[in-house]
Design a protein around this nucleic acid. Structure first.
Lengths: 194, 194, 194, 194
DNA sequence: GATGAATGAGTGTTCATTCAT
DNA sequence: AATGAATGAACACTCATTCAT
């Protein structure tokens, strides 16, 4: 249910996503976002403290939806391998289907000050922790090695997927991202060894 | 022996590294860099076309050194696992020992326009390819699975390490990065499975 | 009645005229013009694309008024000699009464790039053509020689008056400009010969 | 006789004439002039106090030659009409044959500060006075009207020719300047009347 | 709440001039 | 005298943010 108050809020976020994806954060003037959202420049400041705030909220909003999808999909299984597969599938599929979102998360999000990076870290945390829980679950049910450093491994897993997406994006999205799921999973499960 | 001509060039790069690490790229005024380098503002433009150019050269210079170290170390062995270990060791150790460089590569480098990102991609390519070669070598000598997608795997490996470094940096460098080498290698070689 | 929108536009032009006359175009910083106009620096760029634009608009605005006066005065007569007299009278009188405008038209206008000079040429054209028409009229009604090269003669006439104004200005405006009308006319009509 | 000391002086002036004509005064960096002259930047300051100085000297040098030609040609005759014809012929011919010089005198010379304009006025004075003398001579020998205001008339004459040259230049030199001599003279001698 | 005109702080870059060699 | 690397003052322009309506 979207109240009348939040209508403009979402219009602005929608406009910002479009403008950021087209021009990059630093080249996206507030007035351009306002125009894309169909509101006046000043109106933006009724919903956001600063320009940076738009980016943060955009990230939180969009990532929140993603994290929800992750949680929903994983809830259905006790198999850690299967859970990892679902995580990876959603990760690749969702970003492949939303190139604008992909661009903003992979490129623009990183273009921010240290302060903002930490803010983003907080938003990202539930996702990272979800991966951590899956790894822990895999250990607990005997699927994974017991001596895994879960905090390190979750970073390795997230970092891998993250880089694959960025690489795909910078390459010009010339191949299918979701087609990489199987081989990515192979690597997570068995590593490179025979 | 540093020729007189390149002396200021390196002074400026050194100053820029310091200033970028302290303030971030966008908050680093050219005049601040000049001051840190002990030269006049205008002098910078005798050696660099524009501010962005400093970042690119800084990256190329520093990353070039790193890539050389990677190549040298790897040249000594035919064992793909051992080569991966060396790569990871150098990657973690060098950045741990050069926090300023780490900050610039992990945070500031990403703060740049798409155009620059591609420039950086080119500089990074030899490193990525080195990893690819190691993986290929591992396949060839039977250490690794034959059906590995080398281009995907190299991205997974690089992305993993990259994320570990970023995470370490954003955490405030509270733990030892090089101590993560063994477990990182475990993950690369065997994945998570028992 | 000046609409609210154009109010600042005219304030800026007025300020620019003053500042240009006092300091010359190149020594007139935008901030100085803004101050003289009683607006913020940035406001200028809501009404003009760039600094040069102010000069062009100033010229068009002021010259447009002059050209109108020329046209009005000439419309009243069929006598080419009388028309020339009116042209000359207005030319001298108006500039004598507006030393700031005189300074800008005679000195600053010429200080601009070739590109701008052509722009100015376009604005000046109606005036030059008016002179041409008068000459043609004089030929047609038998007052002037039939074999006059009207395009050359209009330049000779305009150039004469223009130089007289510049000379008067550079001399420090020590004598009356309008007092030169009679003798200037004599020269136009009869030349130097007995 | 050119001493070794003045060799570079003339090289610089020659280079400046070329560069000014090609780029205009304000877009002509000192370093560009130095390059065109085949000397080092600093060398220029051994011969000229400031950049503006080059323009002044260039003007004085080139105009000095012109004035000499004027004087020589006029010395041969006592006929004021004939003298005016010679003045006009040389004025148009010389500038038509030296488009670079024409460009600098008609366009660039005007692009200078009031201070410089007065400097130029001084250099131009002998030429203006020469015209004045011719007019006076015409009066004295009964060729011209006795009640002519010589100081005004000289300005009218100079201004006419000056405007014709500028107009020809801005038109892109599409027609012959010297072909305008006869009709210009007609205007000076008889004005426009029948 | 909504507007959008107005603000003014902030900075990369140029280039005339200097001066140690 | 000649060099040319180094200097640093100067400034147009942008754009996030405010606030009177």
């Amino acid at each position: 249910m979207t109240s009348k108050k939040t209508e403009k809020y979402h219009l602005i976020l929608q406009g910002a996503l479009k403008v950021f994806a087209e021009n990059g954060y630093h080249r996206s003037q507030v007035s351009k976002i306002a125009k894309a959202a169909g509101v006046a420049d000043g109106t933006i400041y009724l919903y956001f403290k600063r320009k940076e705030d738009i980016l943060i909220h955009l990230f939180q909003e969009k990532l929140g939806e993603l994290v929800n999808k992750f949680h929903e999909s994983v809830a259905e299984t006790n198999d850690a391998c299967e859970a990892l597969r679902m995580i990876c599938t959603i990760h690749y599929t969702e970003l492949e289907n939303n190139p604008e979102l992909a661009y903003v998360t992979q490129i623009e999000m990183r273009q921010s000050e240290l302060e903002l990076r930490k803010e983003i870290g907080i938003t990202l945390k539930p996702y990272i922790e979800l991966i951590e829980n899956i790894v822990q679950q895999g250990i607990d049910n005997g699927q994974f090695r017991a001596n895994l450093n879960v905090k390190l491994v979750r970073n390795l897993i997230f970092g891998s997927m993250d880089e694959v997406v960025t690489s795909w994006l910078l390459s010009g999205q010339k191949y299918s991202l979701r087609d990489q799921v199987d081989e990515t999973l192979q690597f997570f499960i068995h590593g490179v060894s025979k």
